[in-house]
């Protein structure tokens, strides 16, 4: 057990290291350097030279990489070219907003998806299942910006209940943020629920047909207990990693939703960073998102370990 966890941890660190090299080289491979890109037509003479000196671009690539990597390890993300504030201060509040958005969507969406998936499996091929599956497939196939737009036109334009876009400062207090994100959360939830629910349904159908669920039924166990105690935990095991991927997608893929709702999160920031050609910022965001993916997958693996007795106990017979 401990060895498994250590192995996963080492693996995660190595992955991050590789990702940092890839991100750094990708930027390095672009024609010109960060200053040229940022300054554009004005990239010549003294101005270019000053910029290069300021951002230390004259050093060789390996030296710059090691400086960047050492900075990262101590929590220093680097310096923006366009923005005068340190990157931590630019990214920090927006990252918080994205995490709030993603986490809320996950907290609402995952339990909902599990319940719906289990219901669909229990009422397999009956009316409830057909409706749940139909709506799920609709939400899966329609891109999130369409769903977002549909929700805006329904709740904001037609009913007038909720604001259509989010107007707030990036560092607004938590309560303020929560009160404004109903529609973005709804959009994300709809898309995410569909994926997870389909997976839970399939897995649950398999488990419901298993010997041990039949056995629990023939022991006289009530239907509710059969489902909650015997079937569901076993049905969720194969879905944990998918759920983690979905949360990771939530954090990264909120980009479109953030733009649609004008939400000050990391997604919108990355769009701005790219259009500003602010390479250090792009680099920092890319690495941040990668760490998030790695962290979430790590958590999922550990969770799977905790929930699955077969993986957890040592010396287990296969």
């Amino acid at each position: 057990m401990l060895r498994l966890i250590t192995r996963r941890l080492i693996f995660a660190v190595v992955t991050l290291w590789v990702v940092s090299i890839v991100v750094f080289s990708a930027i390095e491979l672009l024609p010109g350097d960060a200053c040229q890109a940022f300054l554009g037509q004005m990239a010549q003479g003294k101005r270019l030279e000053n910029c290069r000196v300021e951002h230390d671009l004259n050093a060789p690539a390996y030296a710059r990489y090691s400086k960047w990597a050492i900075g990262l390890a101590s929590g220093d993300l680097g310096k923006s070219i366009k923005r005068s504030k340190p990157l931590e201060e630019i990214i920090g509040p927006r990252f918080r907003n994205t995490v709030i958005l993603g986490l809320t969507a996950a907290l609402v969406g995952i339990p909902l998806a599990i319940v719906l998936g289990a219901l669909a499996a229990l009422y397999r091929d009956r009316r409830a299942d057909l409706w749940i599956s139909f709506i799920a497939i609709f939400c899966m196939t329609v891109p999130e910006f369409i769903i977002g737009t549909l929700l805006i036109s329904f709740f904001s334009v037609w009913l007038g209940w909720l604001p259509g876009i989010v107007i707030m400062r990036a560092d607004a207090p938590l309560l303020d943020v929560l009160s404004k994100i109903v529609l973005p959360v709804m959009t994300l939830t709809l898309v995410m629920v569909a994926h997870i629910m389909r997976m839970v349904r399939t897995s649950m159908i398999d488990v419901l047909a298993s010997d041990f669920v039949m056995m629990s039924q023939l022991k006289g166990v009530s239907r509710l207990r059969q489902v909650v105690m015997h079937a569901l935990p076993n049905a969720l095991l194969p879905t944990i990693n998918l759920i983690a991927l979905n949360i990771a997608w939530l954090m990264g893929g909120v980009l479109v939703v953030e733009v649609v709702f004008n939400y000050p999160g990391i997604g919108r920031l990355s769009v701005n960073a790219i259009s500003d050609r602010d390479f250090p910022l792009v680099q920092a965001i890319a690495l941040l998102m990668a760490s998030l993916y790695v962290a979430l997958n790590l958590i999922a693996d550990l969770l799977a370990l905790v929930l699955n007795p077969k993986l957890r106990t040592r010396g287990a017979k296969v």
């Binding site: 041990f212 056995m215 629990s216 015997h230 935990p233 929930l307 007795p309």
Partner: peptide
């Protein structure tokens, strides 16, 4: 082996 619930 298959009739006992693996997670309990």
């Amino acid at each position: 082996g298959q009739a006992l619930t693996p997670t309990l």
